[in-house]
Design a protein around this nucleic acid. Structure first.
Lengths: 337, 337
DNA sequence: AGCAGAAACTAGAACGTTCTAGAAGGATCG
DNA sequence: CGATCCTTCTAGAACGTTCTAGTTTCTGCT
């Protein structure tokens, strides 16, 4: 077999030190911008580093210093909305001087493995986006190093979430304001946050004295499940047709809108649809979907701040972020019936 | 300010060794499953590790051994198709005994930074998905450690791509077989692979003696740009309406289909549409989009194999993977004109 | 000139692991 | 019974960095 060629040993701090005629310790001081070096040596060392193409070895650095400066983030690869969040997390982490390490969850990689991997790679804390693990599993991770749950409230664990109750309330209020009364909810099945949104919807309907008209229909988290649910809805003779739908998330809502239009209904003339997330993704989608916007940047920032606070010795907390309804073209006044 | 609490030092190999009454070296042997330990000590050490909740520190491990066992992967967060590829890469990497480190590119993080980050974290090689950097930039990275470019052919750099020419040819052939002649291409603008697909389209049209009917219209890589391009197409009186469109990718095609249907055209009765990628994402989307499928698993596997080969001293190469047209409901026989 | 105090610098240990080289303890064999 | 060979085990160096505890050099002041 082919013997792996010995890699051309990367240049080390010792090389830089030798080249610039100073000690390794001083070179280290210069490279990490600590104080205690004269301007003259700073220049010398930096020049040498530049010349040799020196790049500090982050593993060695992390190994020695207690702080690794690493923040782990677990996310589902197949959720575009998570990706948006991660992008903001990068920005927020940088401001706090942290590097981000990603742990992907997908068909071929379980959440448990992802979290394990993050812990092993020396992260100081972990942000878990829409973690699906049980409370006990997450608590076990949290025992090892601070865990912040994003988009899902987990009792006993630091959580940063959107206030689904407020979001649902805004959606329902908006529709009621347009004259709708028969407002149904298509839920997210067993997706994270589905239960919360479901009960938030019921509470909102109750609050508008429409409790007896409330209906929850099972749907899911993606386009196909949305389209399927819309199909079932139209075919089902048991209940009178709704004039508006509040859907678990944007992807599902997109499927719903599409299925409705295919069936010959006009959105919003015949039926209004509200999504949830206001994902970039849904904004792109031609259809101007009215949606409950989660403040991605604020969520990201808050999550990082919670992690930093935990690292500073603070206990876990729970944070709600207010969403804001964004009205576009998928909602309109209720048809006269 | 709040002083960071001293983290509760994680248990180390030395702890395990002490607990089980053996040397650190032996404990190491057991933990990494190397040979040279008796069954008895294996049991002892494993038990102790279990009891103490020991988890090896991957940084220390990587620092010492020449092989880090790490493979870096850069990807765009806002491209769901990249996510699919990454998931397969996880699977393939595992088979080869490698761990995957992700380097995300997004609004707040440039590709250069992502690649730098991967190199610094000690990856042995890097897979860059749809790298946007110039040839020189990528060559510079490749000088440091093996780089494999996925989805984009970069001269002089190891590349694993889909054979766009074949894909386009299948798409055009399929449409021609259905009686279409006026087949236009909506391109990807400045997206990676856009130029390749554009010329592949032109070549395919030529091959079917339809060169003089070929038209390339500027579009883009996402839904909105697709919808916009479709709008422009319908409004433009300069050329006779096409009976079929071959679109840069699925996302764009979805926007196109939607805009066409909104404009009152029926797909495929009035006009056929073919996408490219056959992304999971597009498959979900209710609309059954006919699309040129890139073999994600094969691409992932091949990329990993190239990386491993490079690590074993082999020179860079170029690999084409044959795509396969998947016919669904967005293509049909040409309308009589 | 002498001295204190700061500023600049350095030797060497440490981080947690793997790896090399070799030591101890049996077996096997002539 | 001594030599030879496994097998099992261990001490200690090494990886590239940071950190601690000095040591040297500079500066200003009497």
């Amino acid at each position: 077999m082919n013997q792996p060629a010995p890699p051309p040993r990367r240049t080390t701090l010792a090389d830089v030190a030798r080249e610039s005629g100073v000690s390794v310790a001083l070179a280290s001081i210069v490279m990490r911008g600590a104080e205690g070096a004269s301007e003259a040596s700073r220049l010398k060392v930096k020049a040498a580093a530049q010349a040799l193409g020196y790049r500090p070895d982050s593993r060695a650095r992390a190994l020695r210093s207690l702080r690794s400066g690493l923040l782990g983030v677990s996310l589902r690869l197949d959720e575009p909305f998570h990706a948006e969040l991660v992008d903001e997390i990068y920005a927020a982490a940088e401001e706090h001087g942290y590097e981000v390490v990603l742990g992907a969850v997908g068909k071929h990689r379980s959440e448990a493995r992802a979290l394990e991997g993050l812990a092993d790679s020396g992260c100081e804390a972990i942000l878990a986006i829409a973690a699906s693990g049980t409370r006990a599993e997450l608590a076990a991770v949290d025992a090892g190093l601070p865990l912040v749950s994003l988009l899902r409230e987990v009792p006993g664990i630091d959580s940063v979430c959107t206030d689904d109750a407020s979001g649902m309330d805004q959606a329902v209020a908006h529709l009621v304001g347009l004259g709708h009364r028969r407002i149904f909810h298509l839920d997210g099945g067993d997706a994270v946050a589905s239960a919360e949104r479901r009960s938030a919807y019921l509470a909102a309907m109750e609050r508008h004295s429409l409790g007896d008209l409330a209906r929850v229909l099972p749907a899911g988290a993606d386009e196909r499940e949305g389209a399927a649910a819309a199909g079932r809805l139209l075919a089902d003779p048991r209940h009178p047709a709704p004039s508006a739908l509040v859907v678990f998330n944007d992807r599902c809502a997109l499927g719903v809108v599409d299925a409705l239009e295919r069936a010959g209904l006009e959105v919003p003339a015949d039926i209004s649809v509200v999504g949830f997330d206001d994902s970039q993704f849904a904004r792109l989608a031609h259809i101007g979907l009215s949606s409950v916007r989660q403040d991605v940047a604020a969520l990201a920032r808050a999550a990082i701040e919670r992690a930093v606070a935990r690292l500073a010795g603070q206990g876990p907390g729970l944070q709600w972020h207010a969403p804001a309804l964004v009205v576009r073209n998928s909602t309109g006044i209720a048809p006269v019936s």
